[in-house]
Amino acid sequence: MSTARDTWHRPPFIANPILRWAVYLGVGVYVLWTIATLPIDWARVAEGLERAQRIFGGAFPPSFARSGLLIDGFLESLKIAILATFGGVLLSIPIAFMAARNISPLPIYYLGRALIIIARSFHPVIVAIIFVKAVGFGPFAGVLTLVVYSIGFVAKMLAERIEEIDFGQVEAMRAAGAPYLSTLFYAIFPQIMPRQIGLTIYQLDSNLRASAVVGIVGAGGIGSTLANAFGRYDYDFALAITMVIVGVILVSEAVSGQIRKRI
């Protein structure tokens, strides 16, 4: 009890002091350097504030005068989302089976994984400009884009679900001499079905959100309406559209959450 210690230091996160200071220094230098080299043109920013005033001044009050255009845009977004969800989920099923380690032979597994990684890695807007170039402006490019987007998420989640399935049933089927497809239908589908329905509803919600974005680069839907309004300096209409987008997204999120909770 003679050890009257009166100093204490919290054990550092990185024990090695050299490494620790190197990390601190590295982070500090990186942050300072990137911020210092930001090309901020203060004159432009000051001017920008004026411009912001003009934009917000022009945006209030939001104008619902062309609500016909707005509704059309929305219906188109909804159609894009529905078709893309349908197509995306349909395509996701075979891709998910390909990408499930417990079902597929290695080469097919790698192919499935590669498809998923590619679909996930590219932001839908990039995919959209490529499709717009390939198939022209309009909702079809939007559908294709969101099909890819859906595959990136649905196939990935589904593959993970398939990897967790109970193999007892599959083996029972095989033992009963069932052909491959029957095994699929009777032993695997029932196990992944509930997850699949939840994922589909979630994806429909995501696609509706995303369709508002890909429209900005010309892939149809409400996003195109918004981009046009912005391009024509119709800030009051743009604000109206944005408000409606926000409202619809909130409603759609709530509805999809409720439905997924029920099933």
Partner: peptide
């Protein structure tokens, strides 16, 4: 922490 607090804590 103050030295006397640390000492007291250890005790």
């Amino acid at each position: 922490y103050p030295k006397e607090d640390i000492r007291r804590a250890y005790e």
